[in-house]
């Protein structure tokens, strides 16, 4: 696509060149007219040896030879070139140094300042946020410490309370235990005191059942006492 486009342009340019070639050739063959030719002929040297020759500044300085020499080396043009170069380059230097370069320099400086200012602001903001973070962390540490302290205190207090409760409870229990032991021993003694009576009754009943007669109260009691004392021994 682009290739055909380029080829078309190339062909058009070539056609233009071909069309222009005869025109250019005939142009120079004509006697010189127009601004270039009119003002050019160096009349004081009287060298109008043909239209093309007269067009060339300083041509006549060479005494009207066929070719005026190599134009860049033609000294007759030097004065004019130097003068106009001095004027134009001087103007350019003044314009650049006084107007254009300060102008561009100011634009660059403004941008540079702006960037520097923004960077400074950004770093300031960052410092602020870092400070805030540090403060937050400090507060957090403090709060944590305080919480630990409170928790420790509460734990100690609870421990102490538990300890007291436990002690008082233990004391109460000890008292109750002692009471119970006393009651048990009294009950035991009580119960043991009834053993003899029961044994006498039982022995009377057994003898009655076996023999058919009830032994005397006195005899039974003495027999039971005899057995009990033997057992106790």
């Amino acid at each position: 696509m682009t290739k055909t486009w380029k080829l078309t342009v190339a062909a058009a340019l070539m056609g233009l060149a071909l069309a222009a070639a005869p025109a250019v050739a005939s142009d120079s063959a004509k006697p010189s007219s127009g601004p270039a030719g009119a003002a050019v002929a160096q009349q004081d040297h009287g060298a109008s040896t043909g239209a093309h020759v007269a067009e060339v500044v300083g041509e006549a300085a060479h005494g009207g030879e066929h070719k005026g020499g190599f134009p860049p080396f033609n000294p007759a043009t030097f004065g004019s070139q130097l003068a106009w170069l001095a004027v134009s380059f001087g103007v350019l230097y003044l314009l650049m140094s006084r107007v254009t370069l300060p102008r561009i320099g100011r634009i660059l400086e403004e941008r540079h300042d702006r960037i520097a200012r923004d960077l400074a602001e950004a770093s300031q903001r960052r410092a602020e946020s870092e400070a805030a973070q540090i403060a937050y962390e400090k507060a957090l540490t403090e709060a944590r410490g305080k919480a630990n302290a409170i928790a420790g205190e509460a734990r100690n207090r609870l421990n102490a309370e538990t300890e007291t409760n436990r002690k008082s409870l233990e004391a109460a229990l000890t008292v109750k235990l002692e009471e119970a032991e006393a009651r048990i021993s009294s009950t035991k003694t009580d119960a043991l005191s009834h053993v003899r009576g029961i044994a006498v009754d039982t022995a009377q009943t057994i003898v009655n059942t076996l023999v058919g007669t009830t032994p005397g109260q006195q005899d039974t009691e003495s027999a039971v006492d005899q057995v009990l004392s033997r057992k106790a021994a």
Binding site: V57, P71, G79, S80, Q81, W84
Partner: peptide
């Protein structure tokens, strides 16, 4: 490369300061 004179402005002792295509 030929310098073509458009206007003859000033001539000091044979040196031309004409306005040319170069100018």
């Amino acid at each position: 490369f030929e310098v073509q004179r458009y206007a003859d402005l000033l001539r000091v002792s044979g040196v031309s300061f004409s306005f040319t295509n170069a100018s």
